[in-house]
Amino acid sequence: MNTIAFTTAGQELAAALDPRFGRAANFLIYDTTQKSTRIIENQQGRSAAQGAGIQAAETIVRAGVDTLVTGHCGPKAFKVLEAAGVKVFNCNAATVDEALHELLAGRLTAAENSDVEGHW
């Protein structure tokens, strides 16, 4: 767990955690060794008419992320993330900061399946 992505509409750790994955505005990437953050815009995911989750998952994979923390992840995005070896953690924390603490404290368990069914 070195490079963690969080879904958010904001720019910094104090920003709200976005429960959406595919159509989240940004991914906040936290590097655990450097303790640094950077922002990747989910431009392509949000501009997809369909398959936003898949597109967002590709963006995450390309950014070299190994862990994703988000509200809900659909089955298609999950399939891509799983194939690329990215671990997914579902979390309903209010902010990215809180989500990070819960993750580092070991209070979140990696999802084995998508937590939402069907066509989302």
Binding site: R23, R46, A48, A49, Q50, A52
Partner: peptide
């Protein structure tokens, strides 16, 4: 003949 989409709603 154009369709509503998640993108337009977003």
């Amino acid at each position: 003949a154009a369709e509503n989409s998640g993108k337009l709603v977003t």
